[in-house]
Each structure stands twice: as structure tokens, then as C-alpha cells.
Simulated scan of single mutants.
Amino acid sequence: MTEQLMVKQERAVRTRDALIRSAAEVFDREGFALASLTSISSLAGVSKGALHHHFVNKAALTDAVEEAALTRLLSVAGVVPPRGVSRVQLLVDVTHRLARALREDVVLRVGFELSGEVSRPVRVDLREWWRRWVGEKVLQAEGDGELRPGVTASDAVNAVVSATVGLEVLGARDAEWLSGATITRFWLLLLPAVVSDGLLADLKAEGAWCGGVVAP
């Protein structure tokens, strides 16, 4: 591969990434329905012709935003905890990671918002992906005896998913809903209701790892 071709390919990747981010910013600011390709290309600093070179239409660009958001979500949830960390603590810490990422990353935030967009088919449903991930971890916690007697995995999953998705929706317009303090207070309320007494004292609602206590 010649150096000239490598430079051309790198430029194309940068342009595509800039268009995805610009689309997310315009969707976030104006809403999906009102967002125009002209606004997106202008924000990215490219011509409409260059935009159409990468994405044939708004639907294709939106699909790319969703796919990029899923990649970010996989990174957030795919961390490997230190040895001996409980399933519940993993869930607590990843929830903090997700909230922080939603505050800071417009592509991830818009990817979640697009999951609730009714005017178009959803290609990648991030909210459904999150529900399945939480369900998997809660079932593992149940198998490890981490849940309080009488609490079913489905009850715990419903509580976590409904609360975290609700915070995600509210946080799209007010970042305080996604602050470390808000996530910590949520877990302080929920943990005593769902976790066994033997595990409860060892859990840290503010987060225990992932680079230390999660900053607010």
C-alpha cells in the first residue's frame, strides 16, 4: 500500500467519524426529525457531496450513529472486574460507567435516544441491549446467592432497567440525573432491598473499581 493511499484512507476515516459525531450533535440539539443533512455536513466542515460519498441518505447516517453508539456501549459494559468482585458490584460499577459515558459522549447518548425514536425503524436498540446485559448479570448474581431471599431475578432486573433507562432519558436534558451522586443514591436505596445481608456490607454504592471511585 502506497503512502498516498494510506493518507487518503485515513482522511476518509476521519471524515466519516466527523460526520457521525456531527450527526449525533445535531440530533441531540434539534431532534432527529428536524435534523438536516445540510446542518450535519456544515458542522462536520465537509460538503454535502462528501457526506453523500460516505452515506447515501439520512437513514444510512443514522444507522452509522447507532452502530458507533453500540461500540461505545460494548466498551462501557465489557470491562473485566478484579478477581473476586461480586456480580452485583460489577453491575453497580458499570452503571456508574454508563452514566458518566452518557454525560460525556454525545454519540452514545444519541444512540440511546434513537432507541425510542418512533418515526423510523430501530437498527440497533441500545436500551434493549442494556436490558439483556443487566438480565444476564442479575441471573448470575442469583445463581451465586447474592440476591435477598424472596427477591426474583426478574424483579431485580425490572428495578434496575426501569430506573437506569429513566435516568438516561432525564439525563439527556439535565446531566444532574446522570451524576455520580445520583447513581450512588439510587444504589443506596436499591441495594438493601435486593441484596443478601451477607453481601450488603461489602458493596460500595459509589463504585469500587473501574479506576477507583467514580467521580461525580
Rank of each mutant, 00 (worst) to 15 (best):
residue 1 M to Q: 08
residue 1 M to W: 01
residue 2 T to C: 08
residue 3 E to Q: 08
residue 4 Q to L: 10
residue 5 L to N: 08
residue 9 Q to W: 03
residue 10 E to K: 15
residue 13 V to G: 00
residue 14 R to N: 02
residue 14 R to D: 07
residue 19 L to M: 04
residue 21 R to D: 11
residue 21 R to G: 09
residue 22 S to I: 03
residue 22 S to P: 01
residue 23 A to D: 06
residue 30 E to S: 11
residue 31 G to V: 05
residue 35 A to L: 05
residue 36 S to L: 10
residue 38 T to Q: 08
residue 38 T to H: 03
residue 38 T to V: 15
residue 38 T to L: 07
residue 42 S to F: 00
residue 45 G to A: 14
residue 48 K to W: 02
residue 51 L to T: 07
residue 52 H to C: 05
residue 56 V to D: 12
residue 58 K to N: 05
residue 63 D to E: 15
residue 64 A to M: 10
residue 64 A to N: 03
residue 65 V to I: 10
residue 65 V to R: 07
residue 66 E to C: 12
residue 68 A to K: 11
residue 69 A to P: 00
residue 72 R to P: 03
residue 73 L to C: 11
residue 73 L to P: 07
residue 74 L to H: 08
residue 77 A to D: 14
residue 77 A to G: 12
residue 77 A to C: 11
residue 78 G to A: 04
residue 79 V to L: 09
residue 79 V to Y: 01
residue 83 R to E: 15
residue 84 G to V: 05
residue 86 S to V: 08
residue 88 V to R: 05
residue 90 L to K: 02
residue 91 L to G: 03
residue 91 L to W: 00
residue 92 V to P: 05
residue 92 V to M: 03
residue 93 D to A: 06
residue 104 E to M: 10
residue 104 E to G: 03
residue 105 D to A: 08
residue 106 V to C: 02
residue 107 V to A: 06
residue 111 G to M: 07
residue 113 E to K: 11
residue 113 E to L: 14
residue 114 L to V: 06
residue 114 L to S: 01
residue 118 V to S: 15
residue 121 P to H: 02
residue 122 V to Y: 08
residue 122 V to E: 07
residue 123 R to T: 04
residue 125 D to S: 09
residue 125 D to T: 10
residue 125 D to C: 13
residue 127 R to A: 10
residue 127 R to C: 08
residue 128 E to H: 14
residue 130 W to F: 08
residue 130 W to M: 06
residue 132 R to P: 00
residue 132 R to G: 06
residue 135 G to P: 04
residue 136 E to G: 06
residue 137 K to C: 02
residue 139 L to T: 11
residue 139 L to G: 02
residue 140 Q to A: 15
residue 142 E to R: 13
residue 142 E to G: 09
residue 142 E to F: 01
residue 143 G to A: 15
residue 144 D to H: 09
residue 144 D to N: 14
residue 145 G to N: 09
residue 146 E to A: 11
residue 147 L to R: 10
residue 147 L to D: 09
residue 150 G to C: 07
residue 152 T to P: 11
residue 152 T to E: 11
residue 154 S to M: 05
residue 155 D to A: 15
residue 156 A to R: 01
residue 156 A to E: 01
residue 157 V to I: 15
residue 157 V to T: 13
residue 158 N to S: 15
residue 160 V to P: 06
residue 161 V to Q: 12
residue 162 S to V: 06
residue 164 T to D: 09
residue 166 G to A: 11
residue 168 E to S: 13
residue 168 E to P: 04
residue 169 V to P: 01
residue 170 L to D: 10
residue 171 G to Q: 09
residue 171 G to I: 04
residue 172 A to Y: 08
residue 181 A to D: 10
residue 185 R to T: 13
residue 188 L to H: 07
residue 189 L to P: 00
residue 191 L to V: 04
residue 191 L to T: 09
residue 193 A to S: 15
residue 194 V to S: 05
residue 197 D to F: 01
residue 198 G to V: 00
residue 198 G to L: 06
residue 198 G to K: 06
residue 199 L to A: 12
residue 200 L to F: 02
residue 201 A to K: 11
residue 201 A to N: 07
residue 202 D to K: 14
residue 204 K to P: 00
residue 206 E to K: 07
residue 206 E to D: 15
residue 207 G to S: 09
residue 207 G to K: 12
residue 209 W to V: 02
residue 211 G to V: 04
residue 213 V to A: 12
residue 214 V to Y: 00
residue 216 P to F: 01
